[in-house]
Write a protein that binds this DNA or RNA. Structure first.
Length: 283
DNA sequence: CATATGTCCTGAGAGC
DNA sequence: TGCTCTCAGGACATAT
């Protein structure tokens, strides 16, 4: 999303920001959109970057527009999939060209916020955990071994690791050969190394493919084109199918913390119930 | 305090 | 055919 909009948005000047009339419940926008519009009119977009699952437009004023698309939100620089789910429209000027940026959201769970520098700092440093890209295996271990949770659930906790969604959590654990119910405090150093490698590979590949357009067709890139990573999914939404990696296991679907998890019982052996772990003396 | 569950939203698809 | 019901998963609020 960031790579798609950056060439059209970065170093542009915001001419106008407006809510698109919409029959659905309005998105969470804070402060209210007319106030944001007043405050950012005329500002230059200094940089467009990703912060975990959010898109950050850093403005010349030092403030930041933070867009959180959640599941069905899209940032588009071409015509949207339909008009009725359009929510917000930016008018931008780059040089002498005028362009538009749209926030389209079918389910309306996305958010738009204007943050002060200190609010952005608080989000980055206090509320969000570490980005999984560029994270060492040692840091993975430091972060995850402090909690006692099923590893799949921990991967989704944005205060620990920030940026992994449900689909990618299943794919990463499959690539790492780790069972989704494995408790984080019982993962071994070799497993943390595999987790680090798998996260890097799966996420970078998914980004290169421009994301996953699932059967509901929701996710599209900034040009309203399908992503390609859905064709590379090994376990997500493939329950009952033979695992494409080992060609032996039959992929299973389980529910953890109210979310679907998919895994291969052959590639991802459950942890041995009586597995020895270093405990306190006399325990 | 740490972990677990409930909630919001719309559209697709199942079942009758 | 047209209705009701369930499910999808982001983050956050509330419960245990």
């Amino acid at each position: 999303m960031v790579r798609g909009i950056r060439p059209h948005v970065e170093r542009g000047r915001i001419v106008a920001l407006r809510a698109v009339p919409c029959r659905y419940r309005p998105l969470t926008i804070s402060p209210p959109l007319p106030q944001i519009a007043r405050r950012i009119r005329g500002e230059r977009v200094e940089a467009v970057r990703r912060l975990a699952k959010r898109v950050v437009l850093r403005l010349s004023s030092g403030e930041a527009l933070v867009i959180e698309p959640r599941m069905t939100g899209l940032l588009l620089i071409t015509d949207p999939p339909d008009r009725e789910h359009l929510r917000v429209e930016w008018e931008l000027r780059r040089g002498r060209r005028t362009g538009r940026l749209w926030f389209w959201d079918r389910r309306g769970l996305g958010t738009l916020r204007l943050l002060s520098p200190s609010e952005l700092h608080d989000l980055e440093e206090c509320r969000l955990g570490c980005d999984p890209l560029g994270l060492s295996a040692e840091r993975w271990e430091e972060l995850l071994s402090t909690v006692r949770r099923p590893v799949k659930v921990a991967l989704l906790d944005q205060s620990l690791i920030a940026g992994i969604g449900n689909l990618y959590a299943s794919e990463i654990l499959h690539a790492a050969g780790i069972h989704p119910a494995h408790r984080t405090d019982r993962l071994t150093p070799p497993q943390f190394i595999r987790l680090q490698t798998a996260a890097e590979t799966v996420l970078q590949t998914a980004i290169a493919y421009e994301g996953s357009t699932l059967s509901d067709g929701t996710y599209r890139n900034a040009l309203n084109q399908n992503g390609g990573y859905q064709n590379a999914h090994r376990v997500y939404d493939r329950a009952g199918q033979t695992c494409p990696t080992c060609r032996r296991g039959v992929i299973r679907r389980i529910v953890q913390a109210q979310r679907s998890t998919f895994y291969c019982p052959v590639c991802q052996r459950p942890p041995r119930p009586g597995a020895a772990h270093v405990g306190r003396a006399g325990a």
